[in-house]
Design a protein around this nucleic acid. Sequence first.
DNA 1: TGCGTGACCACGG
DNA 2: CCCGTGGCCACGC
Length: 110
Amino acid sequence: MDQQNFFQNVYDVARLIPKGRVTSYGAIAAYLGVKSSARMVGWAMNQAGAYPDVPAHRVVNHQGLLTGKHHFATPSLMQELLEAEGISVRNNKVQQFQVHFWDPMKELEL
DNA sequence: TGCGTGACCACGG
DNA sequence: CCCGTGGCCACGC
């Protein structure tokens, strides 16, 4: 697949994340078959603002940390959006991460 | 062309 | 949990 498709695929998967759930950059990368290129998923999310309906706030790092919050309109926006969906965030980290975690590998593999 | 940087991650200690 | 190391690769200078 070329880069264009890679980016589009990242956004497509992101759009499939259910409300109130979160996933990680690495999980998306693994689902797309580029497990070792999680950084590229992060780069794709950086550009996500240019595309409609891409819930970048539901994508955090593998620890549940809101590492990308500084790339939103305001640093607090990411947390606010998550809490608005019922996900509690404390000290820049998603609580009960394992419970809210949505793994495309398992959820979409059906 | 090369180098530093980064919304990452696995692994070892 | 923290820390360092190596791999990944687009982008800007």
